[in-house]
Amino acid sequence: MSSVLTGPDLALPDLHTPRAQVLLAVADDNLVTGHRSSHWTGVAPSLEEDLAFSTIAQDGISHADLWYRVLLQGAGFDGDLRAGVDALGLGRDADGYRHAVVCERPPRDFAFTLARHWVHVHVEAARLQALSGSNDAEVAALAIKLAHELRYHREHADHWFARLTGDDGARGRFADALAVVLPESFGLFEPAPGEHEAVADGVFPGGHPGLRPVWLESAAPVLVTAGLGDLVPADDAQAPAEAAGGRAGRHTADFTDDVWPEMTALYRADPGARW
């Protein structure tokens, strides 16, 4: 992996282990989607949605924070935990991030945001379910805790799915957004580097590829019921080339020239800063 910018006297553990790479992928999906969700703070279509997406953004970034903690603590890190978490979240070069490309896409319009939110939250629910069965006690405990909290996100996403697919005016725009999001979402099921070892060791039962059939089994009937069966991804569907490779650190300009410089600017100006 590329370098990590840290404050003085901070020694991070080895981030190349399969466990670390898997947890970076889990955390980074949430961190980057969280930053994209925060776009709506102050400009959402209604006050309720402003609060909703502000909370969703806050939860995403907080969940990332906790996964970085679990990563560090399980790797024997004994330094300042706050400084270590900040270094992981904000100190990596852009190609050190392991999130799926779909997470870094700009919010575009509210339809696109809700389409990505609907997919992301249900894939996340499946992932937390899988991680709840981890043989790593800290990983399992955090997954169980966060799965409880995801309930409100799921209800919010499902509510909007029902509303937008049931409204003649909104339906076309929402379907167009889903048609972009669904293929790109297959980047979420890419394995992190070395993930097969984390799967074999029991850290991440089933791994990211294993989430795909679980998610599709529940999402496909909903799309069909909503009359959007033609959007159900094929069994052999893959992410379009540009939306693949996120877990290996290949990101688009949406990340390298947009989210990444913005979210890391302060940290890079003053590594190790406390706030």
């Binding site: 799921r154 209800e155 029902a162 529940s218």
Partner: peptide
């Protein structure tokens, strides 16, 4: 206030 007919994962309604 409509019910939510389409839920991917069953969750308690409000």
């Amino acid at each position: 206030r409509p019910a939510l007919p389409l839920l991917v994962t069953p969750s308690p309604a409000a």
